[in-house]
Nucleic acid binder design. Structure first.
Length: 506
RNA sequence: GGCCCGUUCGUCUAGGGGUUAGGACGUUAGAUUUUCAUUCUAGAAACAGGGGUUCGAUUCCCCUACGGGCUACCA
């Protein structure tokens, strides 16, 4: 492409939830576009009417928005090249398909699916191409009269690309370099289906041309059909405008056997979709990263590092930094196995990195979702600050911080009861008195007083520290005891000690 | 089966004709933290195999093996 502004597109088909790999393709499109000052287009490839799923398009948009990679043009905003849904562009494709027929680069085929099935069974490695064309019912094997008759009679038919014999189709992939295919290995792909809709092959070429796409990123699974597309660009007379191709490495299952699929989520115990996806028909929900407690920053960060690297030791990247540093040259060729442990590590890093303020709304949602009422946002902020280093997922904030808002309902009695003594009861009784008289409620002072009391009463700190923690939070977890006490306040602390004393001595 | 793509620690990867083959996740050990986590230190851990080319290959070439993708009127 010469002298044109960069335009890329993410072209999902609205058939269900948005897969990890899809988000990464969208991300790489976005990064490249933004870096080049270009335009990121969303094009909905809904040419398969049998697989259309209600709500999937909006869901895809929501996922992209959650990730922060909203398209510049698309069905949601419209744009100069609208419509952006292929189903709404149906009429456009027939014109080009007919043009190809007129120029001898495509032909009508009247074979029924049953006939083709039979042929496939009969001929091993059957390929609808120059070798078998003449044995089938199409405008090459039939006379002009026969074809006209069938057409006039409205017999269902498709239009197929007439792939030439003995040619090499060569192109330069931005990631893989030179790739060559022999046309004898390429079959006469259907371009226009019997229902009048184009197949992916025709639609992608026509729309990339019409929408002035300059760089086409897609998964490696498309590599084998690249020669079909290149032939089409040539036959349509647009070769000079063909986008540069970039076939992205696949994201593989953790065991390396095959590309990651929707079903793997349940099998390996991690999400595959960006956000929860509910199947309207079966009512089944496929879990998403967002609901599992991932931050979009972390999700984008680890997806960006899957198949790409900056060439430095930096691991943590914001979207902005990714835009800055991204380069096609540093995209890998080989597929990457998905590592959920590393994904979680990215999330923990981002939780640590982000301020309590920017985490606030999300943490609040996690707590409220569990029925915890948050009345005091200032307190919430302080709580987040003291517990965030020990959270890997956003959902961990529940266990790590409920006790700041609710008195524990249960205690880890096994950890205290066996070693409980009356002198310990006395110790905490005295502690209540001391704390009640304290003028300043502040962590260091609380700790000093506690330790002083230990000395007075002859307790080893360890003997009473753990019980104290359990009184306050219910179990053996949480930040430093006196940070908790400080945040809880005098009244609540005393209530908790009294309440726990009852449970411990019961 | 055919065609295409790929192959550096368990995983993500850096590197690239002469390196102690580097980093990160995970893992192991230790320190700190009188809970847990964080943090810190140290350790184990890789160039698929065979032929070339070369003074010298993990790096370049070929073959093999292995892995993956595609092979629909699905995208």
């Amino acid at each position: 492409m010469s002298n044109s502004k960069v335009r890329v597109r993410f072209a999902p088909s609205p058939t269900g939830g948005l897969h990890l790999g899809g988000v990464r393709t969208a991300l790489f499109n976005y990064l490249f576009a933004k870096q080049q000052g270009g335009t990121f287009v969303l094009r909905v490839e809904d040419t398969d009417q049998t697989r259309f799923v209600e709500g999937a398009e909006q869901y895809i948009l929501d996922c992209l928005a959650w990730c922060g990679i909203t398209p510049d043009e698309g069905p949601h905003t419209g744009g100069q090249y609208a419509p952006y849904r292929q189903s709404e562009r149906k009429a456009i494709y027939r014109e080009y398909a007919e043009k190809l027929v007129a120029h001898g680069h495509a032909y009508y085929a009247f074979d029924t699916p049953e006939e083709l099935d039979a042929k496939r069974k009969e001929v091993p490695n059957f390929q609808y191409g120059h070798f078998h064309r003449s044995e089938l019912r199409n405008s090459i094997s039939l006379t002009t009269g026969q074809v006209e008759h069938l057409l006039d009679a409205g017999v269902p038919h498709v239009i197929r690309l007439k792939v030439p014999e003995d040619e090499s189709v060569r192109f330069n992939d931005m990631i893989r370099g030179d790739v060559v295919f022999e046309t004898n290995q390429v079959d006469d792909k259907v371009l226009l289906k019997a229902d009048g809709m184009p197949t992916y092959h025709l639609a992608v070429v026509v729309d990339d041309y019409l929408m002035k796409i300059t760089h086409a990123f897609r998964g490696e699974e498309w590599l084998p059909s690249a020669p079909v597309h290149i032939l089409l660009w040539k036959y349509l007379g647009w070769a000079a405008d063909m986008p540069q191709w970039a076939h992205l490495p696949l994201i593989l299952k953790p065991d390396g056997h095959g590309k990651l699929s929707k079903r793997d989520g349940a099998k390996f115990g991690f999400p595959v979709y960006a956000m929860d996806w509910k199947d309207q028909v079966t009512g089944e929900t496929t879990p998403g990263f967002r609901e599992m407690g991932f931050l979009p920053e972390a999700f984008i960060n680890f997806l960006g590092m899957l198949g790409w690297n900056p060439g430095t030791d930096q691991e943590i990247f914001s979207l902005t930094e990714l835009v800055e540093k991204f380069s096609i040259e540093r995209i890998n060729k080989s597929g990457a196995k998905f590592d959920f442990e590393k994904a979680k590590w990215y999330n923990a890093e981002w939780i640590k990195k982000l301020s309590a303020e920017s985490l606030k709304l999300k943490v609040k949602a996690v707590l409220e979702d569990k029925g915890v009422a948050i009345a005091d946002d200032e307190l919430l902020l302080k709580v987040i600050e003291t517990v965030k280093d020990r959270c890997t997922l956003l959902t961990d904030f529940y266990q790590q911080s409920v006790y700041f808002f609710e008195t524990p309902k249960e205690y880890d009695l096994n950890a205290v009861k066996p070693k409980w003594t009356d002198t310990k009861t006395d110790f905490f009784g005295t502690l209540i008195t001391r704390y009640a008289e304290l003028p300043n409620w502040e962590a260091t002072q609380l700790e000093i007083d506690f330790k002083y009391l230990c000395e007075e009463t002859g307790f080893k700190i360890g003997d009473v520290m753990l019980p104290f923690r359990i009184m306050l939070v219910g179990g053996k977890f949480g930040p430093h005891v006196f940070d908790i006490v400080a945040l809880l306040g005098k009244e609540e602390t005393i209530i908790r000690i009294e309440k726990a004393l009852v449970a411990f001595t019961a």
